[in-house]
Amino acid sequence: MLARIVAEAPEFFSYYNIVFLLEAMLATFALSAVGCVIGFAAGFFLAVSRRTISVLLLPLRALTAAFIEMFRRIPFLVTLMMVFFVFQVLGLDISMFSVALISVCLIATAFIAEIIRAGLESVHRTQWDTAAAMNMNLIQTLRYVIMPQAWKIILPPVFSFFILFIKDTALASQIGVVELTYAGKVLNNKGFSAALVFGSILILYFILSYPLAKFGARLEQKLAAARNS
């Protein structure tokens, strides 16, 4: 196995292959990053909509709760297939990258909404009450009182989720999105040994994920220390 890796290595690490792998790595990163940014915006909206009290908005609250509860319980692979087939049936011609991105957004929205909900709840109830007694509306309360206190709680788990999805998007290779894992399968099909190819792919994922994870851990520590100021 080792002898074969050494023999193939020079050809494997050709300029063309390296560029191909780096581009795939970028796609992996983008899929997770863009998905989480959009998921954050949508998740924020969902988490806030759950805090409304008007009877008129009851259907919205129920829908939101159902969405969050459901999409956290469907495997990413199944979500991918559903989105893929929905677009196929609708006859809309969109790229596989878009299909994967939409899937990531759906799941990220559900997970991040749950994280934000917990973050909003972490701010003591009396802060909400006081803002209400001073006639602040929901948006003012969030903007001036709650979010400045809650973001320290919200950010670390959102960041963890983002890193988690760098790895989970490997499944998007299944529908042909050219990301890191797919690139590995392509190179493997070209005849490079699986050990060399998938070993390299594992290392590339590690290079992407490990520094981010370290940064996330530092961020969490910093924010935890800053909580009482």
């Binding site: 998938f198 994922y205 994920s209």
Partner: peptide, 23 residues
């Protein structure tokens, strides 16, 4: 722990399934 937490399970299984036969 660090290695397995920072790489995708899918690729880990690819490695086990496709690369270990070489060994």
């Amino acid at each position: 722990v660090t290695f397995f937490m920072n790489t995708p399970q899918l690729v880990q299984i690819y490695f086990i399934y496709f690369a270990l036969p070489d060994a």
